[in-house]
Simulated scan of single mutants.
Amino acid sequence: MKVLVPVKRVIDYNVKVRVKPDQTGVDLANVKMSMNPFDEISVEEAVRMKEAGTATEVVIVSIGPKQAQETIRTALAMGGDRGILINTDETVEPLAVAKILAKVIADESPDLVLLGKQAIDDDSNQTGQMLAALLDWPQGTFAYKIEKDGDALTVTREVDGGLQTVKLATPAIVTVDLRLNEPRYASLPNIMKAKKKPIDEKAPGDYGVDISPRLSVVKVTEPPVREAGEKVEDVATLVSKLKSAGAI
Rank of each mutant, 00 (worst) to 15 (best):
M1C: 09
V3G: 10
V3D: 11
V3P: 12
V5C: 06
V5T: 13
V7K: 00
D12A: 10
N14T: 15
N14V: 08
K16D: 15
V19E: 03
K20V: 13
K20E: 15
P21M: 09
D22T: 06
Q23I: 09
N30Y: 08
V31F: 02
K32P: 13
M33F: 11
P37V: 06
P37S: 13
S42M: 07
A46L: 10
R48K: 14
M49E: 14
E51V: 07
A55Y: 01
T56Q: 08
P65W: 05
R73I: 08
A77S: 11
M78L: 10
G79Q: 07
G83H: 03
I84A: 00
L85Q: 08
L85K: 03
T88M: 02
T88C: 05
D89K: 02
E90C: 09
E90T: 04
P94D: 14
L95A: 09
L95K: 00
V97C: 05
V104G: 01
V104C: 00
E108A: 01
Q118T: 12
Q118S: 11
D121C: 06
Q129C: 13
M130N: 13
M130A: 11
L131K: 00
A133I: 04
W137Y: 14
Q139F: 07
T141R: 07
T141D: 11
F142A: 13
A143C: 08
A143K: 00
K145E: 15
I146N: 10
E147G: 15
K148F: 06
D149Q: 10
A152T: 15
V155F: 01
T156G: 13
G161E: 12
G162S: 03
Q164A: 12
T170V: 06
P171L: 11
A172W: 00
A172G: 14
V176K: 00
L180Q: 08
E182Q: 12
P183A: 07
R184A: 15
Y185F: 12
I199Y: 01
I199T: 00
A203H: 07
A203N: 11
G205N: 07
D206Y: 05
Y207G: 04
V209Q: 07
I211P: 09
I211C: 07
I211Q: 01
R214M: 14
R214G: 15
V218R: 03
V220K: 04
P223N: 07
P224C: 11
E230I: 12
D234S: 10
V235N: 11
K243A: 13
S244I: 06
